[in-house]
Write a protein that binds this DNA or RNA. Structure first.
Ligand SMILES: [Mn+2]
Ligand SMILES: [Mn+2]
Ligand SMILES: [Zn+2]
Ligand SMILES: [Zn+2]
Lengths: 141, 141
DNA sequence: TTCCTTATTGCAAAAAGTTGCAATAACATA
DNA sequence: TATGTTATTGCAACTTTTTGCAATAAGGAA
């Protein structure tokens, strides 16, 4: 409740509105430390907002991502998951066992700068998932 | 035809089979320099293999990706696209106008090594899309 | 408080992607 | 070349995600 309240002025400032649906979805994201699929968000948010629709959840998650309040992530199965945007990080995931670890953005910072100067682009997103083999699964290879 | 023929032994060696469907889909990927969506692949491959199913296209693209013959890519709309795996590269895409450019893997190589030593993971995939603002769209900001 | 504008939602239909299963056909073996 | 094994396909049902549109309600202004 409080967690999502702080986002209201951010939305207002951009001409958007705070709604019970957005409150509930932000609340769910805030209080889950991990990536959630749209249907996971739906199930949890539904308990706070009767009549909530899955279509609204999909649209809201996309909306929050566009406005920098949530981060989308491709975790490898082709489906999007989301999390609250509170700290910059990336992920490394094992192709074999699915094990996953976080990587500080700091580690990629110099590469981001190199990319920017080489391309002229100004990079905005920083939530990438890299794939590989974890230490354990390398042994089995 | 010839392009896809060369993949036959690779598949055989792993206990898989070359089929008209896989031929056609590999042919389509080989002769299109760009990322294709499953349905784009379907439309083109269908002309060579009557009766080809969309389900088969989805399964085949995933199969080719798992075996390193094709590269899947998340281009930002949440949908997967594919291309033939012939050279290592990445992409930078503009969040505003959609403009996209290729980036040599070389530019990220040292970062990949840093990631590997920091995490203990052995990175396998190298086909990442970074997002930002292109030079033109930065001016409009 | 009341009114007005329009951003947002729910609904329902459509599109995209996945899956179980029986029939088919690739290809190794003899 | 004929045979047997089983990887692969098509089909159809199902799940997930997207979209158009009319009804609703957030919140600025009076
Ligand atoms: Mn994350
Ligand atoms: Mn590519
Ligand atoms: Zn592993
Ligand atoms: Zn641009």
């Amino acid at each position: 409740m409080s967690c999502s309240q702080e986002y209201t002025p951010q939305l207002r400032a951009r001409g958007y509105r705070m709604t019970p649906q957005r409150h509930a979805i932000l609340h769910v994201l805030c209080h889950s430390g991990k990536h959630l699929s749209p249907s996971e968000v739906y199930v949890r948010a539904q308990k706070q907002v009767a009549g909530l629709t899955e279509a609204t959840v999909y649209r809201t998650l996309e909306f929050l991502a566009e406005n920098g309040l949530a981060r989308p992530s491709h975790v490898g199965n082709g489906r999007l998951v989301y999390e609250i945007a509170n700290h910059e990080h990336h992920h490394i995931k094992c192709r074999n066992c699915g094990d996953e670890m976080e990587v500080e953005h700091n580690l990629l910072k110099s590469m981001y700068q190199k990319l920017e100067s080489a391309s002229g682009y100004q990079l905005t997103d920083s939530h990438v998932t890299f794939f590989g083999l974890c230490p354990d699964c390398q042994k089995g290879e």
